[in-house]
Amino acid sequence: MIRIRNLAVRIGDRVIASVPELDVAAGECVAIVGESGSGKTTTLLATLGLVEGAAVSGEIRVGDVDVLTAAPADLLRIRGSRAALVMQSPQAALNPTMRLGTLMRRALARHGVKGGEARRRAEEAVAAVLLDPLILRRYPHQVSGGQAQRFAIALALALGAEVVLADEPTSALDVTVQAEVVAVLRRLRDERGLAVLLVSHDLALVSTIADRVVVMKEGAVVESGHADAVFSRPSDAYTRELIAAVPRLPGDPGERPGEEET
């Protein structure tokens, strides 16, 4: 669904993100991990052609659209309907003056879905993320962070997005709610073949959902591979550092990353 080759994002002479190769297939979750400033969010935004004030080179394909050479109208079309972004702070991502239902109806209309079909899709998508349909009548300040985040996922589903780009989707939520959001993403990946490109610094979270992991540091990829392999046999010193930084509780049953083979 997503194919990135030799991506380089530069501001002046400085490369702020460089990804030689990254693919996300349908039904697969790929996580980009790394600390703040490592270029993970930039990579995500570049995927939708939303990087501003920087030069982007290489090849980025979303479905059959080449993002870097696509006409502006095509870019507007694929944003949302092919690949949708789920942002870090869920409530800030929703216009406070609009009811969620209005927001979804307008987003659907923007992509050519109207009337009864729009209503059907909205209700179906909301049910798919286990939200009460009444939520569509509410304003963003009337819903919890977890509900808002699941609504953002529902919005992607309603628009028919095949790829969800999730930028730290759970870091603004508390732990139990994080688990709900991840469970929803995992179920949609398994049941609907949704492709998920997840950006996170939370390795504990990543280990519960990612099939493959890309580790970034200072704009460059330092390690990538299957999640199990990366977590159990990290080859790069930086990855080992990240794994060691995951907090553990005494008596932890040992499901955290890096625990398996120690």
Binding site: L76, A84, A107
Partner: peptide, 13 residues
């Protein structure tokens, strides 16, 4: 603010 970014990500002109 975030919702402006998310509107852009949804392909709103």
């Amino acid at each position: 603010r975030g919702f402006v970014d998310s509107a852009r990500c949804l392909g709103v002109p």
